[in-house]
Simulated assay, not measured.
Amino acid sequence: MSLRVPTGRTEFTEAAAASEDGGATISMGKYDASQTLGATSGGSSPAEYDLSIALNYGQSAGSAQMLRWVTEHTELVCRPPYSDWSTCLTVGSTGALEQALRIFCDRERGDAMLTETYSFSTALETAAPLGIRVLGVEMDDQGMLPESLDDLLSGWDVQARGGTPKPHLLYTVPSGQNPTGATQGAARRRAIYDVCSLHDVYILEDEPYYFLQMPPYQRDRPVALSQPTPAQTSDDFLDSLIPTFVSMDVDGRVMRMDSFSKVLVPGSRMGWLTASEQIVERFVRHGEACNQGPSGFSQAALYELIEKTWGHEGYLKWLAHIRESYTQRRNILLDACVDHLPAGIVSWNPPAAGMFTMASVAFSN
């Protein structure tokens, strides 16, 4: 299996990938591991992963090689503040959400899930056939309001709610929320976490757009802001990101779902989750009975790209590049809104992350 990819030495474009300086052909054979077992210090390093491994039945948690990569990446990005956290691969975040709902909720018990007033339509459609009621929490331009969440939970009356137990599960998209584009700031995330800790609510943190966080929108931008920003160091890039729920999770009450879909390869149907070892163990057991883990082709291709070719430094450079691309797209879209939509009738909040914005239209007699 061979792929032509940009190396990131020059730029991340198709033209760069096709060139000698900016591209490389990466490949994986069927028996690479066994053929290089005798490699010496003077030759090539032994391969540890090949197609005979990737395309055979494997572990539901994912291959050891990709698990090592996502664990290292999570340590770099999230730094979970407790020791017994773990990761496992998923068949994308939608598949991970469906598994999580089956684990945490019970149809016969009449469980309900909390989320934003406006929420990801696929998440709602995932919950519906499982018999899980979905309750919306009020929002503002930073997403879910912790005060409204606390009021809802503090005043929960099982009898008045038709026997529905007090919710113990919250689903949220903190960065670039679909469909509103809202992004929770650091203080907002801390306040929501504190409310969930008070009421013993478990958090499903869905973060496919986390790395697409953008600088504030300016209509009349200086010329410098209309051009690609200078290359950042990896530390600068990571420091510019809002802390995640899992990075403030001292209770082990967060499952963070990451995905390659919105930043690399949607068709890979591959992501990973981070949670306590106890939760990940249950998730893996469930995966053994429903999907057996992500595609071996996807794991092999991504391993060759992000581990063997880019490494963590190169992948963070790619994420900074893709963030810049989406920032330029957002600016073009909002410039057009300012130029062509009637002020006083149509309004919107410039998104600080992600791929979405939502406009409001005011009608008058």
Results as ranks from 00 to 15, higher is better:
A191Y: 11
D258T: 07
D206Y: 14
R9D: 06
R256M: 12
A96R: 10
D251T: 09
G296N: 04
S52C: 00
V346M: 13
S44T: 11
P222H: 03
P216C: 14
S261M: 01
Q184M: 15
L334P: 06
C290N: 15
W156I: 15
C337Q: 08
Y315C: 03
S63K: 03
L316Y: 01
L76K: 09
K30V: 05
V250F: 12
A182C: 04
N365E: 12
V70I: 07
G267R: 10
D220E: 15
I103P: 01
S86N: 07
V201R: 13
A47P: 06
A343W: 07
F104T: 03
Y193M: 12
R190F: 09
A100G: 03
L302E: 00
M255S: 08
W348V: 08
I345E: 06
L333F: 14
G22D: 10
A362W: 04
S154R: 08
T164F: 05
L55C: 12
M257L: 07
T122E: 08
E48V: 10
T36A: 05
P351S: 10
T25S: 02
G296K: 09
T7I: 15
T244G: 02
Q278P: 02
G143I: 08
L37G: 09
A191S: 15
P129Y: 09
R79P: 04
L333C: 14
M144K: 04
A61S: 09
R221E: 14
S234K: 06
F120A: 12
L101Y: 08
Q227M: 07
W85E: 10
L341S: 15
D206H: 09
S259I: 05
D239F: 01
V223R: 14
G296C: 05
P46L: 01
E147W: 00
A100Q: 04
L264K: 01
V134F: 08
K308A: 09
Y217E: 15
G162Q: 15
A123Y: 13
G311V: 02
G29W: 02
